[in-house]
C-alpha cells in the first residue's frame, strides 16, 4: 500500500478514535458541573466552577462498601462463568456424544430470554429458598445469565482448535481433565481474556438484579450508588457523573490489563500450537 493510502487510513482511524474516546472526557467534565450547567451548556465547555465536591458528596454517601461488594461479586461470578462455560463448551465441541447439539441449543435459548420476563419468577424462586437479600443470589444469577453468551463466544474458538493436539495428548496417555486444564484452557487464554472483559463489564454495570434481590445496604453494589442521587422530583446529575467516574476507574484498569492479555496469550499459544 502506498503512503497516501496509509494517511487516509490513519485519518479514518483517528476520527473513529475521537468518536469513541469523547465520552470519557465528557463524563469527566460532567462530573464537575452543577445541574444547571449540565443541561444548559454545551457538553464540552469547561465547568464554570470545578465542583470537586461532587466527588466528596459521592464518597460520603458510603460508596466504599458498595465498591467492595461490586468487586467480589464481579470477580466470583467471572471465575464461575469462565470455568463452567469453558467446561461445557469443551464437552460440546470436543467430546463425542449424541445430544451435544440439543444441549447447545438449550444454552442458546438461554440467550434469548428478556430479563424483565425472568425477574419476577426468579424473585419468587429465591424467596422460596431464602436467597433474597443474599449476595449469592446475585452471584449465581450473573453466572447463569452470562453463561450462554460466554459459551457462544467460546464456541467459535473451540471449533477452530486443531484436533491433532488432543490426539497427541491422548496418545501420550493424558487424561481428559489434564488435557482440558493443562492444554486447552491455556490455549484459549486470548478468548478467555475477551470473555473476562465482557463478563466484567456486564457484572459491574448490572443493577436490575441487585435492585430486585437485595434490600440491605450492606450487600448493594456500586450501580445502586447511582440510584442514591436520583430523586422523586430532583436528580443530582453532577454526583451521578462523579459516581460513574469512580466506578469506571477500576474497570478501566482491569480492562487495560486483560486487553494486553488478549495479545500475550496468543503468542504463547502460538508457540505450543
Amino acid at each position: 500500500m502506498n503512503r497516501i493510502g496509509y494517511i487516509i487510513l490513519y485519518i479514518f482511524l483517528g476520527i473513529v478514535g475521537v468518536f469513541q474516546i469523547f465520552p470519557l472526557i465528557w463524563l469527566f467534565l460532567f462530573s464537575l458541573k452543577s445541574n444547571s450547567e449540565i443541561f444548559a451548556g454545551s457538553p464540552f465547555t469547561l465547568p464554570k466552577e470545578w465542583l470537586w465536591e461532587n466527588y466528596a458528596t459521592v464518597w460520603e454517601g458510603g460508596i466504599g462498601l458498595y465498591f467492595w461488594n461490586s468487586v467480589w461479586i464481579t470477580v466470583v461470578a467471572i471465575i464461575l462463568t469462565a470455568l463452567f462455560a469453558s467446561m461445557a463448551t469443551f464437552a460440546i465441541t470436543r467430546m463425542q456424544w449424541k445430544l451435544n447439539k440439543l444441549v447447545l441449543g438449550l444454552f442458546m435459548v438461554g440467550l434469548m430470554i428478556p430479563i424483565h420476563s425472568a425477574i419476577i419468577p426468579l424473585f419468587s424462586m429465591f424467596l422460596n429458598v431464602n436467597l433474597i437479600d443474599n449476595p449469592w443470589s446475585i452471584v449465581i444469577t450473573y453466572t447463569a445469565y452470562n453463561l450462554p453468551i460466554t459459551m457462544m463466544i467460546l464456541l467459535g474458538f473451540y471449533y477452530t482448535l486443531p484436533r491433532e493436539i488432543e490426539e497427541a495428548a491422548i496418545i501420550d496417555g493424558c487424561s481428559v481433565h489434564r488435557m482440558f486444564f493443562r492444554i486447552i484452557l491455556p490455549m484459549t487464554a486470548p478468548v478467555l481474556s475477551t470473555i473476562i472483559i465482557i463478563n466484567m463489564i456486564y457484572n459491574w454495570n448490572e443493577f436490575v438484579f441487585v435492585n430486585t434481590f437485595i434490600s440491605s445496604d450492606e450487600y448493594k453494589t456500586l450501580t445502586v450508588g447511582i440510584q442514591n442521587f436520583i430523586g422523586q422530583y430532583m436528580t443530582d446529575w453532577g454526583a451521578i457523573g462523579a459516581t460513574l467516574i469512580i466506578s469506571l476507574l477500576p474497570i478501566l484498569a482491569a480492562f487495560i490489563f486483560f486487553s494486553n492479555k488478549v495479545v500475550e496469550g496468543i503468542s504463547s499459544s502460538a508457540v505450543k500450537g
Binding site: F84, A91, W97, V103, F107, M125, A144, L147
Partner: peptide
C-alpha cells in the same frame, strides 16, 4: 473423548445453573 461420566461432569454445572435460573423462570 466419549466417556459419559466426563461429559456429564463438564456439562453439569453450566446446565444446572442455566436450567434452574433461566429455564424455570
Amino acid at each position: 473423548m466419549s466417556n459419559k461420566w466426563v461429559i456429564a461432569i463438564y456439562i453439569f454445572p453450566a446446565l444446572l445453573l442455566v436450567g434452574v435460573l433461566i429455564f424455570i423462570p
